[in-house]
């Protein structure tokens, strides 16, 4: 603590990602609420893994026309989860994180829901950029992508203002800018992976660990 290390629970203080997602989807694409409600039955890791996974190949006895719906839910959920994970990895001691995870598995307790902490204005701007990139990758038209990004940022802006003393773990360039890939680099599933900037940060963007120590 004296060295500035923050416990996972403290790092996650904020609003659960799934709640933010539901709120955004309810406002933006209410027809997807059944999906969000269904996804909420899974833990965060499962949701991210499934949403990142490839669309199911043609199965025997499927309908098989091959159309894929342009869904907002994966865009929002994956970006916000990436933000949450980056914040955790930026602030939490890896050893403590690992120990907590092992203890949790030992006690068979479910993982705590990922939470999005209150973000600064700069961080919100970066979140917006991430949403735009993710929506663009999923072939949303620019207008719709902007609409989604604005809705996400608007929803996050309603959260309480960040504590100035809180670590400045920005969403970072390695947040899931590539939602189609596996779990994003830097996520708990791959803590050793180097960040792979899909979108180079601006000169003011803080480094991944800039506020951690």
């Amino acid at each position: 603590m004296a060295s500035g290390t923050v416990l996972p629970e403290e790092a996650r203080a904020g609003e659960p990602v799934r709640d933010v997602v539901r709120s955004v989807i309810a406002a933006l694409a209410p027809e997807e609420l059944p999906l969000v409600d269904g996804l909420r039955r899974f833990d965060d890791a499962t949701v991210v893994r499934r949403l990142n996974g490839r669309s199911r190949r043609r199965e025997p006895l499927g309908f098989g026309i091959g159309e894929v719906a342009a869904l907002v839910t994966p865009v929002v959920w994956l970006v916000l989860d990436g933000v949450a994970q980056r914040m955790v990895s930026a602030t939490v001691d890896r050893a403590a994180q690992g120990a907590a995870g092992a203890l949790r598995r030992l006690l068979r307790r479910p993982a705590p829901a990922a939470q999005v902490p209150p973000l600064t204005r700069e961080q919100l701007a970066e979140v917006r950029a991430l949403v735009l990139a993710a929506a663009g990758q999923r072939d949303f038209p620019p207008e719709r992508a902007a609409e989604i990004a604005d809705a996400v940022v608007g929803r996050l802006a309603l959260s309480p203002a960040p504590d100035p003393s809180a670590p400045r773990g920005a969403p970072g360039p390695s947040a899931p800018a590539d939602p189609a890939g596996p779990v994003g680099p830097g996520s708990p599933a791959d803590p050793q992976a180097a960040p792979a900037p899909a979108d180079p940060p601006g000169p003011d963007a803080p480094g991944p660990n800039s506020g951690a120590n």
Partner: peptide
């Protein structure tokens, strides 16, 4: 049942 994570406009019976 529902597979909420799959974006295809599809269903399958098994």
């Amino acid at each position: 049942v529902v597979d909420p994570a799959t974006a295809s406009v599809n269903a399958v019976v098994f």
